[in-house]
């Protein structure tokens, strides 16, 4: 699968276009920050440092990007190598951890949601972990669907406001929103069916302090 928009952005970056750099940074820095944050025990400063290193490394190696995966997925691979290197340097012992979706308590919550039997207290019990999970799913959705869903569910924008922000029509926004929600449903359903988060967490590991 070719990612034409990503490829186009990379081409512009290689030509040195500043506008492309702004798009690149604004699109991916926050996403990378969140991706890393979930893997460094919520250390914000470390997540910022590693996100910066990841972006620099990605920019240095743009020629190697072949658009076989989404640009963000490609950068996540780079981020993982930095995280691994960081913890290796800190002499932290690696341990294979159970991904959040496979964690018994989280999984139970997710299954009750899927069965339509969820209760508000159960959701709130694991609010932080679930929030992180949802954010990561959103960040991996294609075509800026994550932004659309964020506008709708977090910023609580109206369709008209979203249309204005995206510089498009209300009909187009409604249509895009429907596709975004469907995409999210599919991603989450796949998450529950596979019994693992490999789709979203290709490397199922974290680190703990010695």
């Amino acid at each position: 699968m070719q990612h034409k928009q990503d490829k186009q952005l990379v081409k512009q970056l290689l030509k040195g276009q500043t506008q492309a750099f702004n798009t690149f940074f604004d699109s991916y820095h926050s996403k990378l920050f969140r991706f890393i944050l979930g893997r460094v025990d919520g250390d914000h400063d470390l997540a910022m440092d590693l996100a910066q290193e990841t972006l620099c490394k990605a920019l240095d190696n743009l020629k190697d990007y072949r658009a076989e995966a989404a640009l963000f997925t490609w950068m996540c691979q780079i981020a993982r190598s930095f995280i691994y290197a960081h913890f290796s340097k800190q002499k932290r012992r690696r341990r294979h951890v159970v991904p959040m979706a496979e964690h018994p308590s989280i999984r139970k919550v997710l299954l009750t949601i899927a069965d339509g039997q969820e209760t508000q207290p159960e959701l709130q019990l694991h609010n932080q972990q679930i929030q992180q999970l949802i954010e990561e799913v959103l960040d991996h959705l294609p075509n800026n669907y994550g932004d659309l869903l964020t506008w709708k569910y977090i910023d609580e924008l109206s369709v008209a406001e979203m249309a204005e922000r995206a510089n498009t029509t209300m009909v187009a926004i409604q249509s895009a929103l429907a596709r975004a929600r469907q995409s999210f449903q599919q991603a989450f359903t796949a998450l529950l069916k596979t019994d693992s988060l490999d789709h979203f967490y290709p490397s199922n590991w974290e680190y703990e302090y010695e």
């Binding site: 969140r34 997540a47 996100a51 949601i113 339509g116 609010n127 359903t189």
Partner: peptide, 21 residues
């Protein structure tokens, strides 16, 4: 998972985690 369940999950997301501006 249906639309309502997706909505339920998405509504758990109170805010996006953002780096310090």
């Amino acid at each position: 998972m249906n639309k309502e369940q997706a909505d339920t999950i998405l509504k758990q997301l109170k805010q996006r985690t953002e780096p310090d501006a």
